[in-house]
Amino acid sequence: MGVNSDPLLGGEGFLTTTIKTLANWGRKNSLWPMPFGTACCAIEMMGAFASRFDLSRFGAEVARFSPRQADLMIVSGTITYKMASVCRRIYDQMPEPKWVIAMGSCTCGGGPFDSYAVVQGIDEFLPVDVYVGGCPPRPEALIDAVIKIQKKIEMQGAPLV
């Protein structure tokens, strides 16, 4: 983006940019998360949304419980195979462009549950953009993940539909 405040052009100043950059700038600063909380990590996610850590400072506080209105899925908590098909279906219902954060050890690789029922990492069935380790990770770590998603959007953008 460039800034011009030439008096010949009115003196008010204006920006030059491309539609794509402008759209991505808007996207990255107004992520609408879909919280998919299934276990204790969800409590830390709520902490990240609430006043002390306040994810709204980064434009991502409008948690949508309808996948149709969300563009960032935060999977926080143990995912069993029985839950995995539900998780995938909700992800499929989100409109493009969309991103995924795997929050906590369970979503990253199964955590302590090396068992017959638990998915050993949600990347078995979802494209994950950012992994957050920890059991559970602190809200700061989730905020860091959201900022990483913002950087990714800024650098790579998303296809203009």
Partner: peptide, 8 residues
Amino acid sequence: REASKRSF
């Protein structure tokens, strides 16, 4: 996890 994967 085979049976779980099949059901999934």
